[in-house]
Design a protein around this nucleic acid. Structure first.
Lengths: 168, 168
DNA sequence: AAGTAAGTTCAAAGGGTTCTGAAAGTTCAC
DNA sequence: GTGAACTTTCAGAACCCTTTGAACTTACTT
C-alpha cells in the first residue's frame, strides 16, 4: 500500500470508529489527520485535506481542543494558528476515557441514584428499585476501575496489570 | 418520585445513553423497558409503551436478540411471542462488551495492522508506520484486558480486582 | 382450504445532526 | 486609525439515519 492511500484510509477508518461511538465523523477525521501529521497544521491545511468548510473545521478543532486531544501552537513569523495532536497514544486514550467518564458516566450515575429513590412498595416498584440499585453499583464500580486505570502509569499497566490478567 | 414517572425517566435516560454511544434510541428504549418489566412483554405492549410503530419495534427486538441482551419466550395458551431481557446487570455488561469487541474492536485491529505495513522509507511514512504500530498495540492490549475481564467471575472482579485497584 | 392472528419486510417519509458559507468579529502591522 | 489576515458564528441547506405503515409471509385454527 502506498503512503497517500494509507493515510486516506486511516482517516476514513478513524472517522468510522468515531461514528460508531457517537462522535461526529469530521471531528474524528480531523483528529486522525493531526495524529499522522508530523508538523502542526493550519486550518486551511485541514480544510484542504478533508474537503471540509472553514466553519466545520473550526468547530471541530475547538471541540478537539476542548477534549484535550489537540493543542494550538504558533510558528514564528506566522500569524495564523497551527494545531497539533497529542501523539502519545496512551495519553490520548487516557484523555478520551477521562472526558467520556466526566461527560457521560458521572451524570448517569447521578440519575440512577435519584431513580433508585422512587416511592412505593408494590412488587413492580420494588423490582424497579432493585434494578436501579444494580445499575448504580455497576456504574460506580466501572468508575472506580477507570479512575484507577487513569492514575496508573503506562508502564505499570503493561507490565504488572496485563501480566496479572494474563494469568487469570 | 412516582413509579410511572420514574419508569418513563429511566427509559429516556437509557435512550440518551444509547444515542451518545452510537446505539439507536429506540433500541435502547426497548431494552430499558424490558429491563424494568417483571414479566415478558409482547410486541404490542412495547409499541404502546414507547409509541413506536410495529416495524420499528420488531426490528429493534431482533437487534436486541442479536446482541444477546433479550430472549424470546412463550406463554402457554398464547400464540404470540413475548420478550424478556437479561436482568443480571453483570451478565448484561459482559455481553455488551463482548459484542462491541467483536463488532468494532477486532475489525479495527485488523485494519491498523494492515495499515502498519505501508511501503516507503521517508520520514513521514516512518512516522505514520510508527503511529499505526502504537495504535495497534493499544488495541491489542485493550483486547487482552477485556477478554480477561469477561472470563472473570463477577465475584472475583468485585472482591479481588477492584480491591487490588483501590490500593494503587 | 379458507380464515385469522400473528410476524416480517422495505420503499418512502420524517427528523435530527452536521455542514456550509457568508457576514461579523478579532488581531496585528504599519 | 485603517486595512489585511485570520478566526468565529450561525441560519439555513444538505445529508443520513431512523421510523412508518401497508403489503407480504408465515403458522395456526376450524
Amino acid at each position: 500500500m502506498k503512503n497517500e492511500e494509507a493515510r486516506q484510509e486511516f482517516i476514513q477508518l478513524w472517522g468510522t470508529i468515531g461514528t460508531n461511538w457517537g462522535i461526529n465523523r469530521t471531528m474524528a477525521q480531523v483528529h486522525a489527520l493531526l495524529l499522522i501529521s508530523k508538523d502542526p497544521l493550519g486550518a486551511d491545511d485541514v480544510m484542504e485535506s478533508l474537503n471540509a468548510s472553514r466553519g466545520n473545521v473550526n468547530m471541530n478543532l475547538r471541540a478537539l481542543i476542548d477534549w484535550g486531544l489537540v493543542r494550538k501552537t504558533h510558528k514564528s513569523g506566522e500569524r495564523r494558528e497551527f494545531f497539533i495532536a497529542e501523539k502519545d497514544v496512551w495519553k490520548m486514550a487516557r484523555q478520551i476515557i477521562k472526558e467520556r467518564k466526566k461527560r457521560e458516566l458521572e451524570p448517569v450515575r447521578n440519575s440512577l441514584h435519584e431513580l433508585s429513590a422512587v416511592e412505593g412498595d408494590c412488587e413492580e416498584t420494588e423490582a424497579f428499585r432493585h434494578m436501579m440499585a444494580d445499575l448504580s453499583k455497576l456504574t460506580s464500580e466501572t468508575d472506580t476501575a477507570l479512575e484507577a486505570l487513569m492514575n496508573a502509569e503506562r508502564n505499570w499497566v503493561t507490565t504488572t496489570f496485563l501480566k496479572f490478567f494474563a494469568n487469570k
